[in-house]
């Protein structure tokens, strides 16, 4: 079995993985970080979005062996202690979730989408979140949250 080493939420981790292990399964099963969700498992719904070297990707469609040497951030890595990340706080303030299943992926996609663009438009947000599906159809408040989060992050 190959061995991988990566930085996960700022922490160095390493270990052996089967080659067939998907990144999302490595995160959830091996690292026990269950904030990253599996919705469709077909790279459409975006519940599994994490950051790999700063870019949002669908972790159900990457192999764990592919992140050897990379920096991976999951939803658990956003907050600073008890203090929520500005995007998380914006979702809380704007009621940007109903059941919450899609929320970790939405937040991770949003943080990547708005980086450097504090005045992002509603249209840009709606197009930018194309790869994230909310089955509660709560998009309106999600978009409001992302817009507020962008401002709070300040680009």
């Amino acid at each position: 079995m190959p061995s991988i080493s990566l930085t996960l939420n700022g922490r160095s981790v390493s270990g052996e993985v089967e080659t067939k292990t998907l990144l999302v399964d490595y995160i959830r099963e091996n690292q026990k970080l269950t904030g990253t969700h599996v919705g469709c498992d077909t790279s459409q719904c975006g519940s599994c979005v994490v950051h790999v070297d700063g870019k949002s990707v669908k972790s159900c469609t990457m192999l764990a062996v592919q992140v050897d040497g990379s920096e991976v951030t999951t939803i658990e890595g956003l907050a600073t202690g008890e203090e929520l990340h500005p995007m998380q706080e914006a979702f809380r303030q704007n009621h940007g979730l109903q059941c919450g299943f899609c929320t970790p992926g939405m937040v991770m996609s949003a943080v990547d989408l708005v980086a450097g663009n504090p005045d992002i438009s509603e249209t840009e947000i709606r197009e930018g979140l194309e790869g994230n599906i909310c089955r509660c159809t709560g998009y309106h408040n999600i978009v409001k949250s992302v817009q507020a989060g962008a401002k709070a992050m300040g680009g």
Partner: peptide
């Protein structure tokens, strides 16, 4: 093509 995450990969 696809969505933002697909385009990244």
């Amino acid at each position: 093509i696809g969505d933002r995450q697909v385009r990244a990969r």
